Amino acid sequence: MVDVFIEGHNHPLDVVKNKEFEKLAENINEFHMQMIVNHSKANVGPSLTHQLCTQQLGGFQNVGATVKQFKNFQREMKCLMNSHDGEMFKSRLDTLAETKGLHFVYEKDSKNALTRIFWTDCDMQRAYALFGDGVSYDPTYGTNKYNMTFTPFTGIDHHKRSITFACALIEHENDESFMWVFDRFKGSYGWERA
């Protein structure tokens, strides 16, 4: 229940010099988003991105957003990307297949999550044709955030440097997954070496 309502104010409603610090003025715009995305690709964090944006625009008052908002946007962006990262990975491989001659095969489970993927490209196949007399297959421990095991096929070139012939990621280290990877490796080269 309201007893008395007085419409007057005892302070000015808007102070122009403090306008850039108001919550309504602190918005992430397209320029900020593009800077955060581009800098994220180069592993530059939101704090440094905000600092670079401040220098580029000539001061904090010209940025229009806070460091905290830059951090929040990057966190939200990563959450969104994590829910679509398998699709983004496949899209990237599709692009490489069109432009660089990459060959890849993958499988998904019933939840549409990536369970296995194998890839090789023209350079890897050329290296295998030259130096594929000895091939090493060494699955690594699943240290990535997806707990998938990275399984490269490698060899040694004439300078005694390691070279990669093909790669795969597998969800489970079991006979079925290893057979799947070896079948893809043999199939991608069209022959078996002695």
Rank of each mutant, 00 (worst) to 15 (best):
L57V: 05
C122V: 01
T95V: 01
N18C: 08
T49Y: 13
A113K: 13
I163D: 09
S40R: 07
N147L: 05
H159M: 09
F118P: 01
N82Q: 09
T140N: 05
T95E: 07
V44P: 02
S91Y: 14
H32T: 02
F178C: 04
F150R: 07
F178E: 06
F89S: 06
A97F: 10
V105G: 09
K68S: 10
R161I: 05
C53L: 14
N144F: 09
T115P: 00
V67Q: 08
Q61R: 15
A97R: 11
L96V: 08
Q56D: 04
K23L: 04
L80P: 14
N10S: 15
N72P: 10
E20P: 15
T140Y: 03
P152F: 13
K17M: 15
I6A: 13
D183T: 00
M148F: 11
H103V: 01
E7Y: 07
T149F: 10
P152G: 14
G86C: 12
F89N: 04
E171P: 03
C53H: 14
Q34N: 14
D109A: 02
Y189H: 14
N147D: 12
K17Q: 14
S91D: 10
W191V: 14
F89Q: 01
E76C: 08
L52R: 14
G134C: 07
N144I: 12
A113W: 05
V135G: 02
N38E: 07
E20V: 02
G45W: 04
G58N: 08
M179D: 00
N10Q: 14
G142C: 12
L52T: 12
D183E: 13
L13W: 13
W191G: 15
G58F: 10
S136G: 12
N62C: 01
A97E: 04
E192Q: 12
R184E: 05
P152T: 15
D123Y: 05
K17V: 11
A65Y: 04
Y189C: 05
L93Q: 04
Y137K: 01
F104V: 00
T140L: 00
C79P: 06
V4E: 14
T95K: 06
M35G: 02
M33N: 07
G45C: 05
N144D: 13
E30Q: 00
A168R: 03
L24W: 15
K160I: 08
K186D: 06
A129E: 13
F150A: 03
A65H: 04
M33Y: 02
T120L: 01
I163V: 12
G155Q: 14
I117H: 10
S91T: 15
T151G: 11
K111W: 13
G86V: 03
E7T: 14
T149I: 11
H50P: 01
S47K: 03
N38F: 07
K160N: 07
